[in-house]
């Protein structure tokens, strides 16, 4: 794993929405570092703040969000960077694939128009090599008949095609950091693999670091070096992918992995985590997972678990992690 100076360092990041009197803490006390060329997977509950975390790094949060903490990218503090410089970074070093393909593409312009615009911007920003033509960009993400797609409007493409157009745009010029929020949800298994391979190649050829947010745990397992698991706005476990998947230490991670569909005696078995997701505006004082946790002890309900290191670069926020709980 690459070490040394981190490319991205997030320290004590908090993002709040809603009224200050009754805040929704979408991201709470997040600490995270990413080395150049590293691939990090983020998984976790729906609504646990994954998209918000990424948007905070890209500074694309809505104005209503209250952000505090530090986000350092290549030595620059992003949260206090003037918008003009931030825009320059976004054009060149930082790229993001957003979770919402339809709303990220302008319905009034053809795919070609929009792709050309991105390519022009990247060229101006002096993006690193490899900038091909629009057709090449689409071919790289395995779109059939790319010349035809350039002339089509977003609504004339299938969901998966739109998603690939966005991936194509974000990877057109190798950025130093690529944040991909659910880049493959709408894709069939074979094209999905090709996109993941594209990310890996980007890392290998240009040293791009990748943050991939996805509900597809198998994608994370096969692509990423490290994985972060989030629950109710907090990072609950972080560690080397292999280790986390082999021996998850947080009960939420364990329950999440257990709810993957299994095939038992010819039947698909689903095992959802019992109980309800907590309301982010009314979190209990202790561990947010306590109410649904099979291993919870009274302490869990009273006090928020502190970080505990359970292996090399493997940390867990759980009172019982040290005991090899559950």
């Amino acid at each position: 794993m690459p070490h040394g100076e981190p490319l991205l360092a997030i320290r004590g990041l908090n993002v709040e929405f809603g009224l200050p009197a009754r805040p929704v803490r979408a991201v709470a006390d997040a600490d995270l570092t990413l080395a150049p060329g590293e691939i990090l997977g983020i998984a976790g509950e729906s609504g646990s703040g994954k998209t918000t975390l990424c948007a905070a790094v890209m500074r694309t949060l809505p104005r209503t969000a209250r952000v505090s903490g530090r986000v350092e990218f290549a030595g620059k503090e992003l949260l206090s960077l003037p918008e003009r410089e931030m825009a320059r970074l976004r054009g060149r070093d930082l790229a993001m694939v957003l979770q919402n393909p339809m709303t990220s593409l302008d319905p009034l312009y053809t795919i070609g128009n929009q792709l050309e615009e991105v390519l022009r911007e990247r060229r101006r920003g002096g993006g690193a090599g490899r900038l091909g033509s629009a057709v090449e960009v689409l071919r790289r993400v395995h779109l059939t008949a790319p010349e035809l797609r350039l002339r089509q409007y977003p609504h004339q493409l299938s969901g998966g095609m739109r998603q690939r157009v966005l991936v194509g745009m974000a990877t057109a010029a190798a950025p130093r950091l690529l944040i991909a929020d659910e880049p493959t949800t709408a894709l069939d298994a074979s094209i999905q693999d090709e996109i993941l391979i594209l990310f890996r190649e980007l890392r290998e050829s240009a040293g791009t670091a990748v943050v991939i947010v996805t509900h597809d745990l198998s994608a994370i397992r096969r692509l990423s070096d490290r994985v972060v698991i989030m629950y109710a706005g907090r990072i609950v476990e972080e560690g080397p992918t292999v280790e986390v998947f082999r021996a998850p230490r947080h009960p939420y991670t364990q329950a999440l992995l257990a709810s993957l569909p299994r095939i038992e005696e010819e039947e698909v078995v689903l095992q959802p985590i019992p109980g309800q997701v907590p309301d982010l505006a009314r979190l209990p004082p202790g561990c947010a997972f306590a109410a649904r946790c099979p291993a919870a002890i009274p302490l869990c309900r009273e006090e928020r678990p502190r970080e505990r290191t359970v292996g090399e670069r493997h940390r867990v926020f759980c009172w019982r992690a040290g005991e090899g709980a559950a």
């Binding site: 659910e182 949800t185 709810s259 569909p261 959802p272």
Partner: peptide, 17 residues
């Protein structure tokens, strides 16, 4: 039309059930 792709596996399991 792909109603559960955007859900985490646990919620997905809930919705499918």
């Amino acid at each position: 039309d792909e109603p559960v792709s955007a859900l985490d596996v646990s919620v997905r399991a809930q919705v499918l059930t």
